[in-house]
Amino acid sequence: MQVVFKIVRQDQNAASRVESYSLEVEPGTTILDCLNRIKWEQDGTLAYRKNCRNTICGSCSMRINGRSALACKENVGSEVARFAPDAEIPEITIAPMGNMPVIKDLVVDMSSFWANLKAVDPYVSTASRQIPEREFLQSPEERDKLNQTGNCIMCGACYSECNAREVNPNFVGPHALAKAYRMVEDSRDDRSDDRLDKYNQSTDGVWGCTRCYYCNAVCPMEVAPMDQIGKIKQEILARKTTEVTRSIRHRRTLIDLVKKGGWIDERQFGLQVVANNFRDLGGLISLAPLGVRMLTKRKLPMGFEPSEGVKTVRSLIESVQAFEAQSKR
Rank of each mutant, 00 (worst) to 15 (best):
L316D: 12
E41W: 05
I89P: 01
G230F: 01
Q148P: 00
M154T: 04
M183G: 07
Q138S: 06
K6I: 12
D227A: 14
R53S: 08
L316H: 10
Q272N: 14
T45A: 14
T253Q: 13
S112M: 11
K240H: 11
R246M: 14
T241W: 01
K297V: 01
N116T: 08
P132A: 10
A15Q: 15
D189I: 08
K104L: 03
M62P: 09
W114N: 11
V3T: 11
V25I: 13
V223R: 06
R37A: 13
S160F: 03
G303E: 12
V313T: 15
R67Y: 06
D186S: 09
A180E: 03
I248M: 13
I7M: 05
I248C: 05
Q42Y: 04
G291I: 03
K299N: 12
T93Q: 09
V172E: 11
A71G: 08
N151A: 15
T93P: 00
A178T: 04
W114C: 04
V18E: 14
V273H: 12
V172A: 08
G58L: 12
E142Y: 01
L106Q: 08
Q326V: 07
F304N: 11
T45G: 05
A164K: 04
A14Y: 01
V244T: 15
R37S: 13
V320H: 09
V258R: 08
Q2S: 11
R279G: 01
I232S: 03
V274L: 10
L137R: 13
I232W: 07
V320S: 08
T203M: 09
C212V: 11
I131D: 03
E24S: 15
D186I: 07
A157L: 06
G261S: 12
T296P: 00
S327G: 00
M294A: 14
K231D: 09
N163D: 11
G28F: 00
N200S: 15
S59R: 06
V80Q: 10
